[in-house]
Amino acid sequence: MTSERILCPVCQVAFPLKEEKVPGKRVVCPVCGAVLVLEKGDASWVLRRPQDITPEEEIRARVENFARLRGYRFNEMKEPLIEALLKKYERYGDFYCPCKIDNIPENICPCLETRQGSVERNGRCHCGLFWK
């Protein structure tokens, strides 16, 4: 059985969704850890960011999921960074990396270089949120 690929609206990566498709079902993106909601679009199934949780709940769930998926850990930098990500969300409308000037999709946490393995190479992500 081939599973349909479905686009994560956070990291913009399409991943195979093997589970049964039910409207409103919560799905975790296996690439970035985002918590998403399954919906029936016009032509196919789509994933959207949940509207029924607070920004803080959303980013906390995402970073926890990402760390679990990759086997990374946190330290005392975590809380200041969650606060900083929320500040970025308030100011610029999304969870852009607090240590990068450009508020662009590739810098949405976990940012592209982190998703592409910078923690493996450097022992931590640039900001110090995720540690090996």
Partner: peptide, 10 residues
């Protein structure tokens, strides 16, 4: 620095 960056504060 950036005002949002914890390592900058450190």
């Amino acid at each position: 620095a950036l005002s949002t960056c914890p390592f900058c504060k450190m």
